[in-house]
Design a protein around this nucleic acid. Structure first.
Length: 883
RNA sequence: GGGUCCUUAGCUCAGCGGUGAGAGCGUCUGGUUUACACCCAGAAGGCCGGUGGUUCGAGUCCACCAGGACCCACCA
C-alpha cells in the first residue's frame, strides 16, 4: 500500500488526503496510516510538491479588490545571471513577513524582479568574448548589448528556481527585469523631468576613473586598499613639497601652503618651479593644507586629484591632464610619454635624482581608492560626465526620515542615512558601461550654435524634431545602475498590473542589506519623493552579512562559502530558514553554523513527530470541535497557547523575528512536546491536541513553511492550505491554571532531580492532603519517577526541594543523609534570597517610587520564598529527629 | 579624522530598566518509556570587558577607558 504523502499534493485546492484512498474500503484506523509515515521528516519528499501546490493555486498573488488591507514588499532584485549566494539568504525574512501578512488576511504582495547587474554581467561577458579573442570594442555598444541580453535571457532561470526552492512566496507572475522596456521608459521619464527641473548637467569634472573598466564610478563604488608607498620630498625652487605621486608633477598648477604657516607665509604670491620641466607655478595660500603633514607644502594637481580639483576651482587654477583613460602618461615630455603610471613614477624619480631635487624618501602606508568590482586602482581624472545635483533633492528625504515617515529597523540607521544625505556631493550618473540603460541623449555632429549641444531624446526621430535633418550620434554612456534601481519601487508597480501602483504604493517594508543603505535605500526615497511625492516604503528593515561561525564574511576565496543549496539538500530548506531567522538580530551580522541548521532540522523533525503522535490519536472520521479544557494540564496549555500567540504576533509585528522564532521553538519543544503531550498520555483531549497542533503549525508556518504545510495536508478534516489559513487570534489567559501547573512542574522537576542525583528507582511520593497532589496524582506518577502519589497522615522521608507543596519521597535512610547537604544548601540559598528581598521591601524609597505592581510582585516573591524556606526548615528538622 | 556596532556559560549568540541571568551547540551522569536517539531525564558551567555616574532598582541608561568589527572621509 502506498502511503507517500507527497503524491497526494498534486491537486491544488481540493487536496486529497491519505484517507481518501481508503474510502471505498472498510474503515481503517488512521493510526495505522500515520504509523506508516517515516519516523523522520524527509524534506525532499515534500518541498517540491508543496511549492508547486502553492504556486499553482495562485496563493502568491495578492487578492485584489477584496477590500483587504494591502501589504507589499519589493524584492531587492538579484542578478539575473547569478545564482543564490549568502547575500540572498536574509530574503527569508521578507518571505516571513509576507507569509505572516497573508495569513493575517492582508492582500500581500512580494514583488520579485531581476537585475541586469551592469558591471558584473559586463565583466562576465567580456570574459566570454576574451575566450574568442575579442573584446567589446570589436562589437560596438549595440551588438554588445544585444549579445549580453541574449546571454542573460538564457541564464536567467537559475536564480528564480533557487528562490523557489527557498520557499519564497513571491508573486512570480509579476516578475520584472531592470531592462524591461516599461521600466526603462519610467527611468527616461524621470531623467527628462530632472533635466527640465535643472537637476541634471553635463560637465568636465574630476571623476573616479577605472582604467580596467574604462568607466567612471561614483565615490560610493570605491573601496579602500592599504598600500605601501614612498613619500617623496622634492624641491620646487623655494619650497619643498611631499608627494606619493611624483609622476603627476607635469600636471601641477600651483603650490599651496597654509596661510598661517610661519615658514611659508611670505612666499604666498611668489612662484615656485616644477623641476625637470622647469615650469613656474604660483604659490598660493589655502587653509586646507595641514602644516604638520609632510613638508607643509602641497603641490596642486587639479587634473588628477579630487582634493586639488576643489582647491583649483576655488583659486581658478587651470586643469592639466597628463594621464589618459588607459592610465598612461600623455602630454608629457617624450621621455615619459606613453608610460604607465608605475613606470612613469620610476622614471621621474630617476630624473629627479639626476636633477638633485629629490631630498628625502620615507615609507608611507596609506589607503588608495580601488574599484570595488575589479580592485583596479582608481585614477582620478577629468572627463565629461553627466551629473545629478542632489543637495536640493535630498532635502525632503532628510525631512521625511526625521519626521518618521519612514521607520528604520533598527532605528540607528536613521541617523546614518541622514548624515550621508547631508554631505552627499553631486552624483555622477553616467557610466561608460554598455550593458545598461543608455542615457537618452542625442548629439548632432555639426551642431547649430543657436541650439543646445545635446537633446534629451529616446530616439533619433525625437532628436530630429528638434534639430532637423542631419547626422546624429547617440550617447553611448549608460546610467549608473543605482540611478535606475533607485526608481525600482515605482518603476515596477507602475507596470505590473492595472491597480498595482494605486494599491501597493507606498510599499509596506523595504528589507535589504545594511551595506546598501546609502547606495540604494536613500536614493529610492529621494526618487520616490521627487517623482511620486511620497516615500516609497513605510518601514526599512536592514540586515548585516551572513557570516561563518567565526564572523568571517562568506566568500569563495576564503573557502568558507558553502553553496546554500547544499545545506538545504542536506538539512531541508526549513532548517536553513529557521536557523537564519533565529540567528539574525536586526542590523547585525548573522553567524550561520551548520550546528545551528542541524538544531533547526531537529526542530522540524520534532514538529513532524508531534503531528504523527497527535494524528495517531484520532480516527478517520474525526472532525475537530472547539477545544474544551478538561483538566489542569488542558487549562494550563490552553492558557500558555494564548500567551504565546500573543507573544509571537507581537514579536513579528515589532520586527523581532529572532525572538519570534525562539518563542515558536520553545513553545513546540518545551511546552507542547515535553509537557502537554506527555501529560495528555494520561487523558487524551483530542480537540485540545488538534487545536494545539493547528495553532503550532500556523505560528511556525512563516518560519518553516514546507514542513508545516506538509503536515497540514495530512489533516483529514482540512481541505485548504496552511499558506492561506488565518493567523490565530488569542483569547484570555487562565492565571490560576498557569500557577498551579507550574507548581506541579516544580514538584515533578524536583523529584526528577533528586531521583537522578541519588540514582534510585521510583520511590513512593507522600504528602499530607495537598489538594494539588491529590488531584493530580496520576499525572505525577506518569511524569515523575515515582511509584505512587499518596496522602498520608504522618509524612516521612526526603522532602522534595524547591516547592511550597509539602511532600516527601520515601527513600532509604542513607539516601536521605546523602541528600541532606543539598537541602541545607537549598535552604541557605533561599534564606539569602529572602534577605535580599526583605532589604528591598524595607527600603521606603523603593515602596515610594517603584510601580505598585512591582512592589506587590516583590512581596509575593518574598512570601513564596519564606514559605519554601519554612517548609524546608521544618523538613530538615524532621530529618534531624530521624537521625 | 568622523560615525556605528560588538564585548554575557567552553563555542555561537539572545536578553525591550523591575530584582535568584537565558538558548542552541559542546561537556558530564543516567535512560532499548511503540511521536521523535534528528530522542528523553538530570547536572556542571557566569564578579554580564574595566572604572565611575544616573536610579528605589543597571547586563540593560549615561560618561570615560581597553580590546575587536564595520561604515563614511579629498592629509598630499
Amino acid at each position: 500500500m502506498k502511503v507517500s504523502v507527497t503524491n497526494q499534493l498534486q491537486c491544488v485546492r481540493d487536496v486529497v488526503n491519505p484517507y481518501n484512498q481508503f474510502s471505498e474500503n472498510p474503515p481503517v484506523l488512521y493510526t495505522w496510516v500515520v504509523m506508516q509515515l517515516p519516523k523522520a521528516y524527509q524534506p525532499s519528499d515534500h518541498e517540491q510538491s508543496v511549492y508547486e501546490m502553492w504556486e499553482q493555486s495562485g496563493a502568491f498573488q495578492p487578492e485584489m479588490e477584496s477590500g483587504k488591507e494591502p501589504f507589499s514588499i519589493i524584492m531587492p532584485p538579484p542578478n539575473a545571471n547569478g545564482s543564490l549566494h549568502a547575500g540572498h539568504l536574509m530574503f527569508v525574512v521578507e518571505d516571513l513577513m509576507t507569509r505572516y501578512a497573508r495569513m493575517c488576511g492582508r492582500s500581500a504582495l512580494w514583488l520579485p524582479g531581476t537585475d541586469h547587474a551592469g558591471i558584473e554581467t559586463q565583466f562576465v561577458y567580456e570574459g566570454v568574448l576574451a575566450k574568442q579573442g575579442k573584446d567589446r570594442f570589436d562589437l560596438g555598444p549595440d551588438e554588445f548589448y544585444r549579445q549580453v541580453m541574449a546571454f542573460t535571457q538564457e541564464s536567467q532561470g537559475t536564480i528564480l528556481d533557487q528562490f523557489r526552492s527557498m520557499g519564497f512566496s513571491a508573486d512570480w507572475s509579476r516578475l520584472k527585469f531592470t531592462l524591461d522596456q516599461d521600466v526603462i521608459d519610467v527611468v527616461y521619464d524621470t531623467f527628462q523631468r530632472l533635466h527640465q527641473d535643472g537637476y541634471i548637467y553635463r560637465g568636465n569634472r574630476i571623476v573616479n576613473w577605472c582604467p580596467r573598466c574604462q568607466a567612471a564610478f561614483a565615490d560610493i563604488e570605491l573601496d579602500r586598499e592599504e598600500q605601501q608607498n614612498t613619500l617623496y620630498e622634492i624641491d620646487y625652487g623655494p619650497v619643498r613639497i611631499a608627494t606619493v605621486r611624483p609622476e603627476t608633477i607635469f600636471a601641477d598648477v600651483a603650490i599651496a601652503v597654509n596661510p598661517e604657516d610661519e615658514r611659508y607665509k611670505d612666499l604666498v604670491g611668489t612662484h615656485a618651479t616644477i623641476p625637470v620641466v622647469d615650469r613656474e607655478i604660483p604659490i598660493i595660500g589655502d587653509e586646507y593644507v595641514d602644516p604638520e603633514f609632510g613638508t607643509g607644502a602641497l603641490k596642486i594637481t587639479p587634473g588628477h586629484d579630487p582634493a586639488d580639483y576643489a582647491i583649483g576651482l576655488k583659486h581658478q587654477l587651470p586643469e592639466i591632464s597628463v594621464i589618459d583613460f588607459d592610465g598612461n602618461l600623455v602630454n608629457v615630455p617624450s621621455d615619459f610619454a606613453g608610460l604607465s603610471v608605475t613606470e612613469g613614477r620610476e622614471r621621474i624619480v630617476e630624473a629627479l635624482k639626476e636633477a638633485k631635487v629629490l631630498r628625502e624618501t620615507t615609507d608611507y602606508t596609506h589607503a588608495v581608492a580601488v574599484h570595488e568590482r575589479c580592485n583596479t586602482v582608481i585614477e582620478p581624472l577629468i572627463s565629461q560626465q553627466w551629473f545629478l545635483r542632489v543637495q536640493e533633492l535630498n532635502q525632503p528625504v532628510i525631512e521625511a526620515i526625521e519626521n518618521g515617515d519612514i521607520a528604520f529597523h533598527p532605528e540607528r540607521f536613521k541617523k546614518m542615512a541622514v548624515d550621508w544625505l547631508r554631505q552627499e556631493r553631486d552624483w555622477c550618473i553616467s557610466r561608460q558601461i554598455w550593458w545598461g540603460i543608455r542615457i537618452p541623449v542625442y548629439y548632432k555632429t555639426s551642431h547649430d550654435p543657436d541650439k543646445d549641444s545635446y537633446i534629451i531624446a529616446t530616439s533619433e526621430e525625437e532628436a530630429r524634431d528638434y534639430y532637423g535633418e542631419g547626422n546624429y550620434q547617440q550617447e553611448t554612456d549608460t546610467f549608473d545602475t543605482w540611478f535606475s534601481s533607485g526608481q525600482w519601487p515605482f518603476a515596477t508597480l507602475m507596470n505590473t498590473g492595472e491597480n498595482d501602483f494605486q494599491t501597493f504604493y507606498p510599499t509596506t517594508v523595504m528589507g535589504t542589506a545594511r551595506e546598501i543603505l546609502h547606495k540604494w535605500v536613500t536614493r529610492m526615497i529621494m526618487f520616490g519623493l521627487y517623482r511620486i511625492g511620497s516615500v516609497p516604503f513605510e518601514h526599512v528593515y536592514l540586515w548585516g552579512l551572513v557570516t561563518d561561525e567565526s564572523g568571517s564574511k562568506l566568500s569563495k576565496s576564503k573557502g568558507n562559502y558553502g553553496d546554500p543549496m547544499e545545506i538545504t539538500n542536506q538539512y531541508g530548506t526549513d532548517a536553513l530558514r529557521m536557523a537564519l531567522t533565529h540567528s539574525n538580530t536586526p542590523g547585525n551580522d548573522s553567524p550561520l553554523g551548520l550546528k545551528q541548521v542541524e538544531a533547526m532540522r531537529n526542530y522540524c523533525n520534532k514538529l513532524w513527530n508531534v503531528a504523527r503522535f497527535i494524528l495517531s490519536q484520532v480516527d478517520e472520521t474525526y472532525t475537530p470541535d472547539d477545544p474544551q479544557p478538561e483538566n489542569l494540564a488542558d487549562r494550563w496549555f490552553m492558557s500558555r497557547l494564548q500567551e504565546r500567540i500573543k507573544a509571537v504576533t507581537g514579536e513579528i509585528e515589532q520586527y523581532r523575528f529572532n525572538e519570534a522564532a525562539d518563542s515558536v521553538y520553545h513553545l513546540l519543544w518545551n511546552d507542547f512536546a515535553d509537557w502537554y503531550l506527555e501529560a495528555s498520555k494520561r487523558q487524551v483531549n483530542t480537540d485540545m491536541l488538534i487545536y494545539g497542533l493547528e495553532t503550532m503549525l500556523t505560528l511556525s508556518h512563516p518560519f518553516t513553511p514546507f514542513v508545516t504545510e506538509a503536515i497540514w495536508q495530512q489533516l483529514p478534516w482540512r481541505g485548504d492550505m496552511l499558506i492561506t489559513a488565518p493567523w490565530p487570534e488569542f483569547g484570555k489567559e487562565d492565571w490560576e491554571a498557569v500557577s498551579e501547573f507550574m507548581e506541579l512542574q516544580t514538584v515533578i522537576t524536583g523529584i526528577r532531580g533528586v531521583v537522578a542525583e541519588l540514582g534510585i528507582e521510583q520511590p513512593p511520593l507522600y504528602h499530607q492532603q495537598e489538594e494539588l497532589l491529590e488531584q493530580n496524582g496520576e499525572l505525577i506518577t506518569l511524569l515523575a519517577p515515582v511509584s505512587t502519589c499518596q496522602s498520608v497522615s504522618d509524612g516521612r522521608g526526603l522532602p522534595v526541594p524547591g516547592t511550597t507543596v509539602t511532600c516527601w519521597l520515601d527513600v532509604g535512610e542513607d539516601s536521605i543523609q546523602k541528600y541532606r547537604d543539598n537541602l541545607q544548601k537549598s535552604l541557605d540559598e533561599t534564606r539569602e534570597y529572602i534577605r535580599g528581598l526583605e532589604q528591598q521591601l524595607n527600603n521606603s524609597e523603593f515602596k515610594h517610587n517603584a510601580p505598585k505592581e512591582v512592589v506587590k510582585d516583590t512581596q509575593q516573591r518574598c512570601e513564596d520564598a519564606r514559605q519554601r524556606a519554612q517548609t524546608l526548615s521544618e523538613q530538615l528538622t524532621q530529618l534531624g529527629e530521624v537521625e
